[in-house]
Write a protein that binds this DNA or RNA. Structure first.
Lengths: 206, 206
DNA sequence: CAACAATGATGGCACCGTATACATCCGACT
DNA sequence: AGTCGGATGTATACGGTGCCATCATTGTTG
């Protein structure tokens, strides 16, 4: 017979309330760690269960399957990214500084959680993704849309379909972040002001 | 005892030369098909072998493992995308039309092979990717860089670090393509001219 | 024509994801 | 207070997968 809890680091501290305490959260946390350390391909439910000190079927109580866990993780990523961008947009200022803050936020997130960001967009492209994910993406676009319309109202941003403008900006941000964890990462941050200026002024000579 | 080749569609036509003829190519082709139909997660070497009518270990003669096959597939993707963009850039014209052609090429590729494009960038971000992949990405950036420097020489594109400009353009293209197979796909193609105009003129009112 | 290298087949191993049946524990209700 | 139900975790089993070692066949080449 073995003791019910053989986990080596839990149990002695903080008086774990019952069973595990909060698997689900532990699984998500462990998944994010494993995701960052190894690829998303190497992530295994059984391994996560092992690290959490539970049996390999226990995760089934909290997630319908591996996809469900990954979708949930991606969803938390979108939420965190959205709040981060929301804060960046909050700060007042001219359009250039707000756009720069937005870009810094996006690229910063990509630097902090590269694997998560990749997972988020991998999941987004998956067939039959859950509605919650598409909704989260929609909220993200809306966060970018807000400063555009506001800038247009006060005449500091050129007129035109705000949807198209927001799409372009969001696409550029995502593209930058996408390149970020492939090429020189830190270097990109230094280039951000130049990129933003370019977006503001356009490619044509003035 | 079974006949050596139980595949149902092969053998009667075109006189297959020997063993299989060209596994490797058949595997890559099958992988791309499976990739497009289902996700990249569902892709299985054994299933590919089955479809090709060979034993489950035969692919091992042509690819060191699953990763090697996927890397190879991604590499062909980069090569095809690069030639497509190269052709788009070949056509002479003012910067706007060339940029539009570039954007059409990139988004068109994304529309034709959405799963492949995703695989390409997933593989690009993988730790310890093969040098050939990074080289292929470099060639892609160079293809975008060329019209930028040419445009600057003839004064039709604003001065500035061409690397930054090319990065911004490439990032926007990739971001657009990345959003393409998530949101309304066909719709995006109609918006491309507006996006290009925006990139050319900038966000600031003129 | 004989030896060799390339290609494919067979079988085995460890691991994975998932489903089912069983055990345990918390909390709520009478 | 005591019991019962549902939530959580366990035990076990099945089919599938990637990879490896070994054996068989085929095409080529000296």
């Amino acid at each position: 017979m073995m003791a019910p809890y053989t986990s080596d680091y839990a149990g002695a501290m903080a008086h774990r309330p019952y069973h595990h305490g909060d698997l689900r959260a532990a699984l998500l946390e462990g998944a994010e760690r494993a995701l960052a350390e190894q690829g998303p391909e190497a992530l295994s439910l059984r391994e996560l269960a092992r690290r959490a000190g539970v049996s390999h079927a226990a995760p089934g109580r909290h997630f319908r399957g591996k996809n469900h866990l990954l979708d949930t993780l991606a969803l938390t990523g979108f939420e965190r990214l959205d709040t981060r961008l929301g804060e960046a947009v909050e700060e007042p200022g001219d359009p250039r500084s707000r756009l720069l803050a937005l870009a810094r936020g996006y690229v910063g997130f990509a630097l902090d959680h590269p694997a998560l960001l990749e997972l988020m967009y991998t999941r987004k492209h998956t067939p039959s993704r859950p509605d919650e994910l598409t909704a989260a993406v929609g909220r993200l676009v809306e966060t970018v849309l807000r400063p555009v319309t506001e800038g247009q109202e006060e005449g500091s941003i050129a007129p035109g379909d705000p949807g198209t403008i927001a799409l372009t900006v969001a696409a550029t941000l995502h593209g930058l972040a996408s390149y970020a964890d492939a090429d020189s990462l830190r270097e990109l941050e230094d280039h951000l002001p130049a990129v933003v200026d370019l977006l503001m002024s356009g490619l044509l000579p003035r």
